[in-house]
């Protein structure tokens, strides 16, 4: 990977998303059953709860070539596992700071609360996030590679 000089218009961002099973993934399914079109740039990984997402997974996604990472969970107070999304909220704040420190614009990382009934909101979120990443352009990975060389793999 290098600092691609492609123009923003023909740049197709690659985005990884983590969806909790109970709310956001169900919201995505509703967008499907309602046939609401949205940007195809996001591929979702379904986890049981947004709190399953280790900050390391987000960093790994950036390291492996993602231009943006999205975490979708239940609305605060609605977590299927009582408090999982509050953990996500705290981790997200930490992660945003860390990303800035790594010179990755923290706008490339988003946490959204989308319920099982918010199919339209799901679609809008995906499209708007894709557009935001498109406007930010592809992620330069030089600095990140250096970081990862120091850090090593946690497994």
């Amino acid at each position: 990977m290098s600092e691609v000089s492609a123009t923003k218009a023909d740049f197709e961002p690659k985005i990884i998303a983590f969806f909790c099973k109970w709310c956001t993934s169900a919201g995505a399914d509703l967008a499907g059953t309602s046939r609401i079109n949205y940007a195809p740039n996001v591929v979702g990984i379904r986890v049981m709860c947004s709190s399953r997402v280790d900050p390391e997974h987000v960093l790994e996604a950036f390291r492996e070539g993602a231009d943006g990472v999205l975490i979708g969970g239940c609305h605060p107070g609605d977590c299927h596992y009582q408090t999982g999304n509050f953990k996500t909220m705290r981790r997200a704040a930490f992660l945003s700071n860390l990303l800035d420190a790594l010179s990755i614009d923290s706008k490339r990382f988003r946490v959204e609360w989308i319920s099982a009934s918010e199919g339209r909101r799901f679609a809008q979120t995906i499209t708007s996030f894709t557009e935001e990443i498109r406007s930010l352009g592809p992620l330069s990975r030089k600095r990140l590679l250096k970081e990862s060389a120091r850090g090593g793999n946690h497994e």
């Binding site: 690659k14 986890v47 399953r52 280790d54 790994e60 497994e155």
Partner: peptide, 17 residues
Amino acid sequence: QRNFTDKQISSMIKAIL
């Protein structure tokens, strides 16, 4: 987490990207 291990999530990320 059984059948949701870090290794599994990591390999999914790699497969997608």
